[in-house]
Simulated assay, not measured.
Amino acid sequence: MRRILVIRQCAFGDYMAARPFLVELRRLFPEAHITLATVTTYRYAVPEDLGDEVFVQETRGSLAEQWRSLRALEPVDILFDLADTSRSRVLTLMAPAAIKLGFPYRGVFNRLLYDVGLRRSNYHYEAEVLLDFLKVMGHKPRYPLDFAMPVHRQAESPRVIAYFPFASKAEKSLSLDSWCQLIDRAAREFPDYHHVLLEGHKAEESGDFLAEVAARQANVEVQPRMSLEALGPWMAGVSALVCGDTGVRNLALATHTPTLGIFFQTLPYRYWPRYEDLHEAVFLRSGEVPGSTDILQGLEELLTRVYPERGAPRQSVSDASS
């Protein structure tokens, strides 16, 4: 295998989930030239450090320009379609490859596009599902998964709990009022921890809404937005991250930082690694939004399990205020 094409047209969090696949792909074919294919919309966080070349499929120009873009790829020995979008299927069809692998949601594409088609499961962590393509070839992935990212060190981490209250869609996260109430209560009930709200890279992902809580609670602050290069090491240095279904949580998973995920719009299992006992998911079987009591109980259980040497992390409100 001298030339390999990996199609992954997705957002920040999904790129994070693809990193172990790329690490293990390099282990399996150390001499191969690996091209990562994306589209103009999703250039942010492309794992360029794990490939040799990035191919950007033209999706905004004229039909002629888009056609030329599709025909620009050189022949490859093997193609992995890790996206299963209409654009990735067109690229898979047009790209000259000796072997094509994908996991289409519709079985008909197994016969039309792929030599090997695998079923995608929504009940296993996405990063592990992607490794099935390499297991087909007899490869033995290493565990815990290697994301080629800074790694959290439990013994050295300061008592900092990070919160990321934003998501790609507002309905996938708690309301800002709910986040204020949650962090305010967490600051009182977990007084030995510093509680830091992380701003997002978008202008509207500001922490200004927490100003009143930060002024009232000495152990609450807002971390201004930072670059992706700085975010990885910073995330690896906190004790835990509390957030919803977001790309930032996927980054925390990639650094093996303990996480408490809050789920109600999406199934938790696809974003919940079970190969290491560092992650917990808060969700209700009814599909309702978890309340502060559910979330803080989950946080207490997570911190107790991951950092038993620190003792009980939570105090009652009366004890915390005394």
Rank of each mutant, 00 (worst) to 15 (best):
P144G: 12
I99Y: 03
S318I: 14
L176M: 09
Y163K: 04
D294H: 13
I78A: 03
V238I: 15
N110V: 01
E280V: 10
F21K: 02
V39C: 03
T59S: 08
L112E: 05
T38I: 06
Q265W: 10
A127F: 10
S88P: 07
L131P: 05
Y114G: 03
V289M: 07
E301M: 03
W179P: 00
D177R: 11
Y275M: 04
I34A: 01
R111N: 01
P308S: 02
L73H: 07
W179M: 06
V39Q: 01
R26G: 00
Y42M: 06
A148N: 12
L296A: 00
E74P: 11
L231Y: 06
S292I: 12
V160C: 00
L303C: 07
V222A: 08
D77Q: 09
V306T: 12
L82S: 11
L50D: 02
V129K: 04
G117F: 08
L303Y: 10
L182V: 02
P104I: 04
L197A: 01
R3N: 12
G311T: 13
G51D: 05
T259Q: 10
P20C: 13
P290H: 02
E58T: 09
Y44E: 13
G287E: 05
M149G: 01
G287L: 07
S227F: 05
C243Y: 11
F109A: 04
K172V: 06
A37F: 08
P308G: 00
L82R: 09
P158V: 05
R314H: 09
T255A: 08
S206R: 15
A18D: 09
E221Q: 12
A320V: 07
T40C: 05
N250Y: 09
A230E: 15
Y163H: 06
V238N: 02
S316A: 13
L182K: 01
L36P: 04
T85D: 09
V248S: 04
V116M: 01
V160H: 01
G232H: 11
W234E: 12
C180L: 00
P268D: 14
Y271F: 03
V56L: 06
I161M: 13
H152L: 07
R68D: 08
V23H: 00
P104G: 03
A281S: 14
I295F: 05
R270I: 07
M226P: 00
D294P: 08
I34D: 03
S62V: 08
R26L: 01
A187T: 04
R225A: 15
G237S: 15
P308M: 08
